[in-house]
Write a protein that binds this DNA or RNA. Structure first.
Lengths: 324, 324
DNA sequence: GTGAAAGCGCTAACAC
DNA sequence: GTGTTAGCGCTTTCAC
């Protein structure tokens, strides 16, 4: 592999000149530039990012930590982040923590090792202390990590209200909400609370059931759905993440409960999986792509030290379907 | 940020000693090791990966190129690759090409720039020439790139036969197959051909319709499903990717066609989305996780120059459901 | 406008 | 067994 030195020799100029010609469009006389370019072409020279990284002390790489990417919400999130980061000139390093013992720790170490310039954290971290006096760019996505770590998220308050209104429009009296693990510190718990408040103000009964920590599988959702129908036979409305609601719809089908007539279902997140079943799910849609774009922009600003006036919170909206 | 030099000064030893103590568990006397470790702790020293990369001439990073990760098949693939690579000591750089103009070109350039040690290519490349005399580790996943680029894939021949047998068991006479774009050179076309042969040998009519290039959305699938029902009113069996079959089931529902009684559907791939609808799809399941593990191992062997006797092809199997 | 040279942080071969 | 040192490939400041 040709190095910049060889190119310099071939072109009959110095190493510095080659570097300047390559990195600054306005550097050097036409003659010199031509010589350098000819040498580059002849030697099939491609600059080494590794050398560049050392010299510049950065990698132009951002790490993304999510529990899994084999889940529609995180898949859409990662997709959006990668795209936005790409357009901002950054590469994306992916880390899925769900199946790995302390992968999160490993990745935070990589940040310290300057493998990447910053991290966007979207996993359900329990060991928040990892982030405490980490003096490098970290942005949290929809979870609280530490006082000095900024956080981008959806307006879950509003999300919960939208769901409640949908239920109330159809006279629901007994709502069950399926939440993530309560130990996880995330603003997302807010939508259950908001929905709760609105429903109770209207005299409805509400119950909350929780999934285990780091449970995102359909199998897990199915199991919990079965429990709900058994435990709350008179439930007439369920709110939960897409996966959970899809499971409820399937179980309702098995038990001959008609949706939406006898049971109203509202999915929270509104990923593509709300659309792909034979009965599209009514959903509160988080603007995942926009949130990702926002997070990517914030991350880059943290790395470069720029200020911005972008918001930290984006509103969700109701996505019509055939389950409520 | 402390550097190795400062640690050496603090410990009263040389830079080389620090490096050796840190990288080789069996180096140095207990006394020296203790001194170094104390200095490391005191200075909060974390070695820079950037310096290491330059010295070692590698980044321990593998690039994964897929069209999108917001699609169950690629999501499961990426998840599996990332996990396997992680356990093999490699980081994963993600690149989604679908929404970006020549992102693929950019990523192949990054490989040349030694940003990563190798690439696993799972996108539907059209410009195969990119890979032609690229002298670096590239592994293709389920697509033909170039004569000297190895390829890991599922036994689609067998997959097609499994599907055909399922149709024949229920006396299907007119099968429509939904394929990806025909310009893409992939072994996956093989399952349509295999299914075709078996069906025709049994006197069934078969038709093939194709999705546009790089079309992986549910909306696209839905549109094609509608066309199929209109164009082939007597169709009694459809084979296609999960997303396409889910769309067919939805459209069948709209038109009052009973599945599986009047129409048999077999999904190819068998990702989790075949399970999440209210009527689980019968599917030919590609062993995505195992394929990913295999591809990751092969990739690492290409990077390190090791030989292996692992297979290049893995068999699919039939996943029971309620659509065939 | 161009070349020389220092330096980015680390590893490992080679002296001692 | 430990220290010295020559790179790894690049960028950029500073003389000329």
């Amino acid at each position: 592999m040709a190095t910049i030195k060889e190119v310099a020799r071939e072109a009959g100029v110095s190493v510095g000149t080659v570097s300047m010609v390559l990195n600054h469009a306005d550097y050097g006389s036409a003659a010199i530039r031509a010589k350098v370019e000819a040498a580059v072409a002849k030697m099939h020279y491609v600059p080494s990012e590794i050398g560049r990284n050392l010299s510049l002390q950065r990698t132009q790489m951002v790490g993304i930590i999510v529990p899994t990417v084999a889940h529609p919400f995180f898949a859409e999130l990662v997709e959006g982040l990668e795209e936005s980061l790409f357009h901002l000139g950054y590469k994306t390093m992916l880390c899925c923590t769900q199946k790995k013992e302390n992968a999160e720790h490993t990745f935070v170490t990589m940040l310290k090792r300057r493998t990447m310039d910053g991290i966007i954290m979207g996993a359900h971290s329990l060991d928040v202390s990892l982030y405490e006096n980490l003096n490098r760019p970290v942005l949290a996505f929809d979870r609280y990590l530490s006082d000095n770590i900024p956080i981008v998220h959806c307006d879950h308050q509003l999300g919960g209200q939208l769901a409640a209104e949908a239920f109330l429009q159809h006279d629901c009296h007994h709502i069950v909400q399926i939440a993530g693990a309560q130990i996880v510190r995330t603003p997302a718990h807010g939508y259950h609370q908001a929905c709760n408040e609105v429903m109770q103000a209207h005299g409805a009964q509400t119950d909350l059931v929780s999934l285990p920590w780091n449970e995102f599988s359909f199998a897990g959702a199915l199991q919990l759905a079965r429990e709900i129908f058994t435990r709350y036979p008179d439930v007439d409305g369920i709110l939960g993440a897409d996966m959970s609601i899809a499971a409820c719809l399937q179980v309702a089908g098995e038990r001959g409960i008609r949706v939406p007539e006898a049971l109203r279902l509202v999915a929270y997140d509104g990923t593509f999986m709300t659309q792909t079943g034979s009965q599209p799910l009514t959903a509160v849609r988080q603007p995942i792509e926009e949130l990702a774009e926002l997070a990517a922009a914030k991350m880059v600003h943290m790395i470069t030290g720029e200020q911005d006036t972008l918001p930290w919170v984006l509103p969700p909206h109701l996505l019509p379907g055939r389950t409520c």
